[in-house]
Write a protein that binds this DNA or RNA. Structure first.
Length: 260
DNA sequence: ATGCCACCTTCAAGGTGA
């Protein structure tokens, strides 16, 4: 199973870029974030024509997550548990019929949290605590579990080009890093860390200030795995070249290969 | 110091998000 996570920054604006990449890279599963549309506006037909089943948790204008899968989608679970009043579409969990049995996959769009002196930052931290609690529950199933998405966390200094430029940012804050580390303490493994682990390999470059041309990026898109998935992990890749395509997203896909 | 992009409302340009 070749599984990708990609923050597409509007699925409707990006549709031609997406189709081109899907035809080239041929992922089996794609966790998408920031689709920026409601369920009924999602381009189902275009993806179905390429052989994908679609699960969508959309929202008007902002956020929105989806999963494309060449495997059957057996269950669709939209929304992160733990706050009935949270209306932001940032989490979509599915159960796929994998080659060797069920595989649980979530597409995650973790809150940005900036500016730090607003309610956005405590919302981010609470959201991360909800994710930790839910992940603990999912890990108790002892199944292959893949939590893939835009985590909006600069987890270590060599995940950005210049730490000094990020020290006051919500993505870099100690409180943010501690909650990201807590996901690993539960027993989740970071696919990049275990199969590659190099620093300064970015997944996002701002559209501004010539960030792409200067390679001023950050590594914030991650694939976290349960032990049962890590055992089957055979490869990891950042699809850097997609940042140079026509009408690129500001993020690029991260792709894991697993024997699942 | 600043440069982008995509969304909304509502038809022109400003507000929001990141």
């Amino acid at each position: 199973m070749k599984i990708a996570t990609w923050n597409v920054n509007s699925v409707r604006t990006r549709i031609a870029t997406l189709i081109k990449w899907l035809e080239e890279a041929k992922p089996d599963v794609v966790c998408m974030q920031e689709i920026k549309c409601q369920d009924e506006q999602f381009p189902y037909l275009e993806f179905e024509a390429l052989g994908y089943n679609c699960a969508v948790h959309g929202q008007k204008s902002y956020n929105g997550v989806a999963v494309l899968s060449k495997f059957e989608i057996e269950e669709t679970l939209p929304g992160l548990p733990g706050d009935a009043d949270d209306e932001q579409a940032r989490y979509l969990e599915v159960v796929l019929a994998g080659t060797h049995g069920p595989v649980r996959v979530a597409s995650i769009y973790l809150p940005n949290g900036n500016p730090k002196d607003t309610e956005k930052f405590p919302y981010k931290l609470r959201w991360m605590e909800r994710l930790r609690d839910h992940a603990a529950e999912l890990l108790s199933y002892e199944e292959p579990l893949i939590l893939a998405g835009d985590y909006n966390v600069i987890a270590q200094d060599d995940h950005c080009w210049d730490p000094a430029a990020w020290v006051d940012d919500a993505l870099f804050a100690d409180e943010t890093r501690a909650r990201f580390a807590a996901l690993h303490w539960l027993g989740l493994t970071n696919a990049w860390a275990v199969k590659d682990g190099r620093g300064h390999q970015y997944t996002f470059w701002d559209y501004q200030r010539g960030a792409w041309q200067k390679d001023h990026g950050i590594h914030i898109d991650h694939i976290l795995l349960s032990a049962q998935a890590t055992d089957r992990l055979t490869g990891i890749e950042i699809a850097r070249k997609t940042r140079g395509m026509e009408k690129p997203s500001d993020h690029v896909p991260v792709i894991a290969e697993l024997d699942l």
